[in-house]
Design a protein around this nucleic acid. Structure first.
Lengths: 221, 221
DNA sequence: TTTGGTTTCTATACATGTAAGAAAAATAGC
DNA sequence: GCTATTTTTCTTACATGTATAGAAACCAAA
């Protein structure tokens, strides 16, 4: 579509599609029709190529989704105004990442990435680590603290997203509901007493509370 | 294999395989040859049936893995001796769950379960919630606290397991390594200074430290 | 022009999960 | 014994990710 004249310098057959084409088209499919519709065949057809040609620009579907996630983060993750207190900065930076990712429903299959590693996202990591140091942690403990925050954040998003997906798919009552329906109050009194409200309680969004608790605890030690 | 005489009471074609057969055989395949080898076709062949017959005893592969996980938890998760302090009880109960799950390499695909819900595992949940209340939290906050612990735990296992899998699969340097290799010290000074030690630092097992911090923070608020 | 090398693209094939529906094997009522 | 009903099993077919092998399109040298 693009380059026309400009004498080529590399040998070999010239590429008809680029990684950017692929990612762009993939993004369009995903935003317009949802992540289910993104198949390698469909994507190939849409960029005017064959499925296996994609594999010369992208290692496989997993990498494609990872690239898509980075692309998404790059364009929707914006640096927020940070508060004065270092501790609050940690909270704000983590919550900003969380909110953007949580709003991205197709994320589940990729989010087990080791870290989020787009250039934009790294700024947030920097803020978290730096402000943890600012609060008195050694750099080593600050990194560990960041990792704990990332585990908590990724876990929250993954668990909630999967639960939501299951609820949407299954017509039947959940396994959880069945188990909670007949708890033995003798064996598990606390859960039995809470069983009626469990669904409601776990549905509440308490990400920030947990995050604050975690940051507090990291700084207290 | 089992029932012989005993006049049947239900109408319909009698079942030749049972859910227990399926789970047992699946467990054998997974423990002997790894989770990759567990396919519906292979499993069907092994129980002496056809793939689609399995679907009358199990909703699909995802449910099968969930059942397998519960089965695994049921037989390897044993109630530990709990310390005296309620706060330490929370830590010990959570760490017990964590350690059993983390030792289970095929877990990744299922762990996004809403909670771990085998009967045995619920005892641990009970301990966590109960002792959080014992420490002064309201029952509501105790449930939220348990959820935060679960998010952190599931996230840790998932992220670490996936990272390990990626390292095992990929021969090429990780995306992370490439990004960390050329960080701009002007933009991200803290990360740039730590970049050489990042892999080493994130490889350390700091689950318990983070857990303690989280529990401390939950109780401090 | 021909030959060789390099890169990209295409065709074909396979393994996998599972949807749809027909067939089989039992019971219940007559 | 015969038919209707119910439950389980089997057959077939499809969508998907991707491995493999080779064809196609470009450059550079002979």
């Amino acid at each position: 579509m693009s380059h026309s004249s400009a004498p080529r310098k590399t040998p070999g057959r010239p590429a008809r599609i680029s990684r950017e084409d692929i990612i762009g088209t993939a993004r369009r499919i995903v935003t317009e029709e949802g992540a289910d519709r993104l198949t390698m065949r469909r994507l190939a057809q849409e960029v005017g190529s064959t499925p296996m040609a994609l594999y010369h620009h992208v290692r496989g579907k997993e990498e494609l989704l990872l690239l898509l996630l980075n692309d998404y983060a790059e364009r929707t993750l914006h640096r927020p105004a940070l508060p004065d207190q270092p501790r609050e900065r940690v909270v704000v930076a983590a919550a900003a990442i969380h909110d953007v990712l949580a709003a991205c429903p197709w994320i589940v299959e990729v989010l087990t990435a080791d870290d989020l590693m787009s250039t934009t996202a790294l700024w947030f990591v920097e803020q978290i680590v730096d402000n943890l140091v600012e609060c008195g942690l050694t750099p080593e403990r600050a990194v560990h603290g960041y990792r704990a925050i990332w585990y908590y954040t990724a876990g929250e998003i993954l668990v909630r997203a999967t639960a939501a997906r299951r609820r949407a798919t299954d017509d039947q009552p959940t396994y959880r509901e069945r188990v909670f329906a007949d708890l033995d109050p003798g064996e598990l009194p606390r859960l039995a007493r809470l069983s009626g409200r469990w669904a409601e309680l776990t549905a509440e969004d308490t990400y920030r509370d947990g995050l604050r608790a975690l940051v507090d605890g990291l700084l207290a030690s």
